[in-house]
Every structure is written in structure tokens, then in C-alpha cells.
Amino acid sequence: MEGYFSAAVAGLGAAGAYALLGVCVVFTYRLVSVVNFTGASIGAAGTFVLVVLHQAGLGVLPAAIIGLVAGTLTGMLIGSVMTRWFAQASASTKAAVNVALLVGIVSVGLRLTGGQHPKQFPDLFPGSAFSLADVQVTISALVALGVAAAFTLVSDYFLARTSLGLQLQALSENPKSAELLGIRVGLLSLVVWAVTGLLATFAMMIIAPARSPDFMSLSLLIIPALAAALVGAFRNPWMTFAGGMGIGILQGLTSNIPHLGQYRGTIPLLVILAVLLWTQRGARWDEAR
């Protein structure tokens, strides 16, 4: 029993990162109508900037700050492609473009970071905060959870309580009409991409030292994040937070079970399938008349 508890606690860092990435996905989707498959790869770009600068001898803190800026800029770059050419496109076209951009980022990333060769990742917040029933809770896990919870709170407030948030959501499908109302959609969507790029980079910096640290594997951490977003039905930040936490802890738990642990990578898929089966009660129809 104790073993399971410690395994669950060990999954907390990943849980926080998944939750943060997942809420970023929901936030982007609600405000600019793009399911962002590139979220984790944007974060991976910033994280690799941190690694390279750190290996070149820069201190962790300045390297991390520059890395966060790089992630933010990468997010804005992707965002400007999406808003500039595809703001009026259909949802499936936007998704296809986004996947194409994912291919692009990952290929460039793999090239610049030397393919699949693992790198040494610095721990941003080394050490453990406290021990819970003989299990060490790391500082970085706590920070990840804290930032995830804070952003969930902020995005929930922004999406549901502020008039700007409500307006942007109402108009996200049709940016042209928003322009007619005098809302500077282009600028605001870039801000959305910048904020989510920054937070995704932070999430990836936290989780990277514990993962197989190549660009491709890190980019694929978007899958648990998308699974979490599905738990929140791409609407509800707190449910998404809970989904991310659940997947992270579940992965921690299964890694402790002999023979099953090596298949823990399939958990996000199982969560996705379960959520889809649950949501599809009753037929739904495409756009109203």
C-alpha cells in the first residue's frame, strides 16, 4: 500500500505539468478556436534553449529566463501563422494546419538539438520540500502544481467572469465580426499564444528532467494534455486540471506495478477513449442551419 502511495506522489510533478499544459490547450481553444497540437513542442523549444545555454556555462536562472522568452516567441510565431492565414478557416482545416506546423517544429527541433541524442537537463528547483509518510515531495512538483492551479484559477475567472473573456469566446469562431465591433482580435490572439507559450515552456522545463529528454518525446507530451482537455470537454479549466492530475498520478501508480509499468505510455490513450465513449451519448449534429 505504501509503495503505491509513494508511486502516486512520485507522479505529482508530471501531474502538475499535464494539468498546466491541458489548461493551456483549453484556454487557447476557447479564445482562438484552435486545438493546439503544438503546445508541448513550443514548450520543448524553450526548454532546449535553456539546456543549450546552461551547457554553454550560463547560470540556471538567466538560462531559464531566456528559455521562457524563447518559448513565448515560438508560441507567438505559431500563433501568427494561425491567425494571419487561417483565422477564418474551418475547425478541421485549422487542426490540419496545426499538425503540419507540429511536424515542422519537431523536425527543426530534432535537427538543431542533434536528433534523438538525450541531453542533460538541469533541475530548476532541486531538492525536496517535505516528506509525506516517508515519501519525498520535490519542490519542483509543488511549484508545478502551484502554477497549474494558479493558471486554472485565472483562466476560469477570465473565461467565465470578465466581459473581455466572454466577448472573445463568443467571437472566436468569427474574428471578422469581432473586428467590426472594434475588438483588436489579431493582437489579443497573439497575447493568448504568448501566454500559453510561456506557461507551456514552464511546464516542459519542470517535467523534462524526469523524461526521455529528446525533442520528439517531449513534444508528444501534448497527448496527456489533450486527454486532460477532453476530460474538461475543452470547456472547463478545473475539470481539465483534475484530468491532468489524474493522468499524472495514474502513470505514477502504474509505473510501480511489475510488467504493467512499461505500458504506462498507453494511459493517455485509454483516458481519451474512455472520455470519448462517455461524452457521445446521443447523436450530435454539425453547425446549426
Binding site: A95, L226, A227, G265, T266, L269, L276, Q280
Partner: peptide, 22 residues
């Protein structure tokens, strides 16, 4: 597939990654 939208993209990406690991 009973739902619209990008669900198939998400589930197929999940499958590709899980299959890779297996």
C-alpha cells in the same frame, strides 16, 4: 467518430504514440 471535430486527430495521435511505446 460519433462526435464531430478533431476527436479523431486526438485519438489517432494517442494511438500512434502508445503503439510506438508498445
Amino acid at each position: 467518430l460519433r462526435l464531430r471535430g478533431v476527436n479523431l486527430a486526438i485519438v489517432t495521435l494517442g494511438f500512434a504514440s502508445a503503439f510506438d511505446m508498445v
